[in-house]
């Protein structure tokens, strides 16, 4: 049985539409929270929406350059070598831990969701606070994931206050 896997472009296209659907849900959630928080005014709602969307769009570019070769176009990772981005409790979990992995890399031989992955990840501290926030926001809202955005300020705090 031969199942044709879409070429990259088609795949990205398809991925985009999934991401869009996720985005819609996500943005809706943000919108509701914003409405509750800023019931007096309409402006912040629009601002938040634009921020998330541009963060995800920018994060996708960062992912393609810095992450895709190991974690793969579908976010599935490589069995036994590089952990997946999809269905990952680490990706969906505590932002601080996730930011630290990007900044410091990871060489620990610990199981992730019950599986061992043997490649080491290099520190990615050359990325700016905004790039890290964007790529994590993208990853947390792609490949079937849905988790709150991460802000540049959160990255800055984990990095140790020195903004890059």
């Amino acid at each position: 049985m031969i199942v044709k896997e879409p070429f990259t472009e088609l795949f990205i296209q398809e991925n985009k539409s999934i991401a869009c659907m996720k985005k819609v849900g996500f943005v809706l959630m943000i919108t509701i929270s914003c409405t509750l928080l800023f019931a007096q005014t309409q402006k912040p709602k629009q601002v938040a929406k634009n921020n998330i969307e541009s963060s995800i769009a920018n994060g996708k570019l960062v992912y393609q350059k810095a992450c895709l070769s190991c974690h793969q176009a579908d976010g599935g990772g490589v069995p036994r070598l590089n952990p997946p981005m999809s269905e990952s409790t680490t990706v969906l979990g505590e932002p601080k831990k996730l930011i630290q992995i990007v900044l410091k890399g990871m060489t620990d031989r610990i199981p992730i969701d019950g599986e061992y992955y043997s490649n080491s990840m290099a520190p990615h501290n050359y990325l700016t606070d905004k790039e890290i926030a964007d790529v994590l926001t993208y990853v947390r809202n792609s490949f079937g994931n849905k988790a709150p955005a991460i802000t540049a300020n959160e990255v800055k705090l984990v990095r140790g206050g020195k903004k890059k």
């Binding site: 044709k4 896997e5 793969q72 990772g77």
Partner: peptide
């Protein structure tokens, strides 16, 4: 050939 079950493999898990 044909182990992958795909004409083209983009991502390893595929």
């Amino acid at each position: 050939d044909g182990f992958s079950g795909k004409d083209v493999v983009i991502s390893t898990r595929g």
